[in-house]
Every structure is written in C-alpha cells, then in structure tokens.
Simulated scan of single mutants.
Amino acid sequence: MRIPQIRLESTKAQIGLKTINAVNNIKQPKADLSIEQPKAELTIRTTPSKLTIDQTQARADVDLKSVVKRMEEFSQKGYQDLLAGIARRAQQGIELMKIENGGNPIATQAKQNSQKPMKEFGLGFIPSHGSVKISYEPARVDIEVAPNKPKIHVNVNKPIMEYEPGKVEVSLKQKNELNIDFEMIDIKA
C-alpha cells in the first residue's frame, strides 16, 4: 500500500555579529615651564687698613730733632742752668759772708769754678728699645648677600582626548528555511 509521507527539513536562521571596538586616544602635552633665577644682590664694603709709625722718639735718640724741639730743649736747659747758677752764687755768697767761721772759702770756690765736672760714660743703644711706635688697624670687609627667589611660571596644557564609540553590526548570516516534501512510500502489510 502506498502511504504519503511528509518530510520536513528545516534550517535554522543564523545571526552574524560584527563588533567594532571603541577607540580612545588620550595625549597629554607637556606643561610649559619657565624658570628664571635672578642673581643675588651682593654688597661688599671695605674699610682700608691703617698703619701708623711714630719714629719721633727714635729720631730724637739719634739727635735728629726738629728745630722747634731743639729750641724748646735749649730754652729748658738754659733756664735750668740759670737757676743752678743763681743757687750756686747764692751759696757761695753765704759762704763768703761767713768767712770768719774758718775754712778757706775763696780757694774752695776758685777750685769749684775752674774745674769742669767729670763726664759720665754709659753704654746705651741708639735708638732706644721701643722708641719706634707702630700701630696697625686691619682692614674690615663687610659682605651682605640678599638672595632672590626663583621665578617659576607653569602653564598646564589640557589633555587631548579622541573617542570613537564602538559599534555592533547585526546581520542575518543565514535565513531560516523549511522544506516540506511529500513522498509516497510503499508499506507492506
């Protein structure tokens, strides 16, 4: 006997997905930086040194005196000699007034007035020690430094951002299909 047979053949639908990734580019430009260092302010003040040499006493020791000093010494010596002469004559006058007391004042006075006194000899150093006076004031240096702070200028640059969003493309890769077929089959009963 012949029986009709239905044959069904189906094919599933297939979806195709195509993904495009997002692109994100970030660039960070360097900051603009400028640094300026002003020079420090330097002040130097110098007081010169001072050397003083006083050789007045040394020159006097070797008999190199000024005219004024010599005149002063001569006038002083003359005055002292005058006083000594007055005192000697007064003493001798008193001795002569008292001639009756004895002794021989005339001969004694004649001997004193005719003889010069003995000169004294002494050993000494010319010029004498310490006769040259030296004084010294050293130089002074005052240094003042005023530092200046650096001048820093910074300009920050913003980042450059580029963004492309991602996509998903959906497509039908294969259509669904249904095939129906009729066939007659012989069945033996």
Score class of each variant (00 low, 15 high):
44 I>S: 05
20 I>C: 15
151 K>A: 01
71 M>T: 04
110 A>F: 12
80 Q>V: 11
21 N>E: 04
177 E>Y: 03
26 I>D: 14
139 A>Q: 10
69 K>N: 08
9 E>S: 00
133 K>M: 08
102 G>F: 05
136 Y>R: 15
188 K>L: 09
164 E>I: 15
52 T>G: 06
92 Q>H: 13
10 S>T: 15
177 E>A: 07
106 I>W: 08
73 E>F: 08
52 T>V: 07
110 A>D: 08
16 G>N: 04
37 Q>M: 00
126 I>W: 09
145 V>W: 01
29 P>F: 10
70 R>I: 15
112 Q>A: 15
149 K>M: 03
122 G>D: 14
135 S>W: 01
166 G>M: 05
82 L>I: 04
70 R>H: 13
58 A>Y: 11
53 I>L: 05
174 Q>L: 06
40 A>C: 04
184 M>F: 14
162 E>M: 03
109 Q>I: 13
138 P>H: 06
45 R>H: 06
76 Q>Y: 10
155 N>Y: 02
46 T>N: 12
16 G>A: 07
186 D>M: 13
47 T>S: 12
154 V>Y: 03
94 I>E: 14
147 P>W: 07
169 E>V: 09
189 A>D: 12
149 K>D: 01
158 K>A: 11
162 E>L: 03
49 S>F: 14
41 E>S: 03
16 G>V: 02
46 T>A: 10
125 F>C: 00
142 D>T: 00
142 D>S: 06
136 Y>A: 07
174 Q>W: 00
141 V>L: 00
117 P>N: 12
186 D>W: 13
106 I>F: 07
92 Q>K: 06
188 K>M: 10
146 A>Y: 08
131 S>W: 07
158 K>N: 08
23 V>E: 05
44 I>W: 09
69 K>W: 09
62 V>Y: 13
35 I>S: 00
173 K>H: 05
9 E>T: 15
52 T>W: 02
86 I>P: 00
